[in-house]
């Protein structure tokens, strides 16, 4: 192969360093500090604006809520991560009249067809950011990446205490720079496009529906 790397770097290094122009770097947006309830409310408002369905529930009732969500829809199964944070609770509380739970336990090469045939998937979330209204996901071995992408319905479970004011805040507080995962995601709603006459339509390639179950201990 060529010496592209050496040539490019040589060209860049040949230029005398520019004297550091004193460019002031103002703060990113005036940081808004939100309270617990405000954070939930803001997240819900913004995500619903992006056509996500946001249901505030609590750790005792979320599975019941999930069952309602599934009963209201004709889905052929629910893809989940058995070893993930939700796995045990789902398995322990599942009813036979519900769409079957399908574990994402094999590598994609072994289960691609099944994966692409399923209607719904459920994941936990790392948290969310309130200022723009988006979930944070760090998919991993137990809850793989395609779980939140391939099925037409994505159900995400969020603990209310994990909602940050902003992405900047999350990156700083959780020290993301010290170790990034294979894949980190922000998700603000179901897949959408405006490529035809700028008409906004939902559900183009990824999920057509995003349902967020917010687990709030302080509810009520």
């Amino acid at each position: 192969m060529s010496n592209a790397r050496a040539n490019i770097l040589a060209r860049l290094r040949a230029v005398a360093p520019q004297e550091p122009a004193a460019t002031p770097e103002p703060d990113f947006y005036p940081a808004t500090k939100l309270g617990h309830a405000e954070r939930i409310a803001q997240l819900k408002r913004l995500m619903e604006h992006m056509h996500a369905e946001v249901i505030v529930t609590d750790p005792q009732h979320w599975i019941a809520t999930l069952k309602d969500v599934l009963r209201a829809r004709q889905v052929n199964g629910l893809l989940y991560g058995p070893a993930g944070p939700l796995g045990a609770a789902l398995e322990a509380n599942w009813d036979s009249e519900l769409p079957p739970l399908v574990g994402y336990t094999e590598e994609v090469e072994q289960c691609k067809e099944r994966l692409f045939a399923l209607d719904a998937g459920i994941t936990s979330t790392r948290g969310a950011v309130a200022d723009v209204g988006a979930l944070m996901l760090w998919p991993d071995a137990n809850e793989p990446r395609l779980l939140s992408l391939v099925p037409a319905v994505h159900i995400a479970v969020l603990e209310a205490t994990h909602i940050h004011d902003s992405l900047a805040d999350a990156i700083a507080r959780e020290r993301w720079a010290e170790g990034m995962p294979t894949n980190a995601l922000l998700i603000s709603g179901p897949s959408k496009t405006a490529d035809i006459e700028l008409v906004l339509t939902f559900g183009v390639h990824g999920p057509k529906e995003l349902i967020v179950l917010v687990l709030d201990d302080e509810r009520g």
């Binding site: 994402y104 991993d140 793989p144 998700i187 603000s188 959408k192």
Partner: peptide, 18 residues
């Protein structure tokens, strides 16, 4: 914000499924 903000830091690690 867009629907997705996708941050990729590595290929599939051992144990990861996709």
């Amino acid at each position: 914000i867009t629907t997705y903000f996708n941050m990729i830091t590595s290929p599939r690690k051992p144990g990861e499924k996709d």
